[in-house]
Design a binder for these strands. Sequence first.
DNA 1: ATCATGACTAAGCGCTTGCTTAGTGTGACC
DNA 2: GGTCACACTAAGCAAGCGCTTAGTCATGAT
Lengths: 194, 194
Amino acid sequence: MGAPEVADTSVRIMIAAADAFAEHGFSATTTRDIASRAGLSPAGVYVHFSSKEVLLFELSRRGHMRARDTLVASAREAASPTDALRDIIGGFSRWHADHHQLGRIVQFEFRHLSPEHRAEVLDLRKEIDTVVADILRAGVEAGEFEVDDVRTTALALLSMAIDVARWYQPGLRRTPESIERSYGDLAVRLVRRG
Amino acid sequence: MGAPEVADTSVRIMIAAADAFAEHGFSATTTRDIASRAGLSPAGVYVHFSSKEVLLFELSRRGHMRARDTLVASAREAASPTDALRDIIGGFSRWHADHHQLGRIVQFEFRHLSPEHRAEVLDLRKEIDTVVADILRAGVEAGEFEVDDVRTTALALLSMAIDVARWYQPGLRRTPESIERSYGDLAVRLVRRG
DNA sequence: ATCATGACTAAGCGCTTGCTTAGTGTGACC
DNA sequence: GGTCACACTAAGCAAGCGCTTAGTCATGAT
């Protein structure tokens, strides 16, 4: 799974760790496994990362930031709240299929972060929530959407998309492209006026 | 968290294991932790369960069976497909709030089951998928629903409900009751005729 | 009274864990 | 040519792991 050759050792270790965490989970992954996937001795990892937990944090932080950036970018480009919602929920769902390994790590291994690192990741999550909630509010104001409770609806939409990482695997009947299309449409159905 | 006193030792061990798995995850939970939560010596657990993995399996099997039974029961009692859908998605969401510990174990620790045990749990999951898909089909036939792709929509609805176990925790603004109500309504919105 | 049964414990076996220590080889700079 | 910084390895430490073994003790049948 890991890229065969990456020049920068830190990046190579992070890819190795992502593969290992995705395969066995954080606790069941040994630092020896990560090291050997990265082509290093066990001690070589500690030149670049001070602990296994820091590696998980770095993966979580970067994963959340990339997901958030993708989301904000599609929101900005859309012509209307309806287009924006279709694009971000479709795009976010597709992201969780394309990066289902990283997605699983970020969502399921959250508890193994230290309290400080957990708080930092939580802040990133709130940013993501806010992007969706803002689009819903804009849609309601523009008369395009009808929504009972903006925050509950935003949460449900994100749940749909995030859960893709739990069940998706390559080679399935559903492709990332078809997921993007159908989940984008489902999102719009959920908020359209009655 | 564990009930203070339960007569049957097997049940006491299962409650102890559920608490420990929910708190630390399967791999990070030690058999010594389970034993001491159950008031036993480390070896005492092995009188009742032959391994830590078997304990996880028993928890997963019972969790899925209980969830499925709740779901089938509400589906049977409903007067129309619309009522049935609202009841089962609302009820299933609420179940994942009320039993968020068990829900998390069942959803997130799945990979640590042996291949045989995984297959057995997957069969139970398919039964749950089918209950939802059948209601959607009945609703389309009765002219109450409008659905592009029954299986995709069923999956998205289940995702919404299952994901509750990931984010819910007691003391939150959202109560199990309010989750049941709002998620039941969201489900109906998602499939109503345009 | 004797014995069988089954739930349980004390002790510990063999192994693996995350991480450290001490040392090696290499390339940049003066 | 010397040296200094840095990425890296071989070896291993202390602790903890899942699970087993050998034996204790209460109970109930004979």
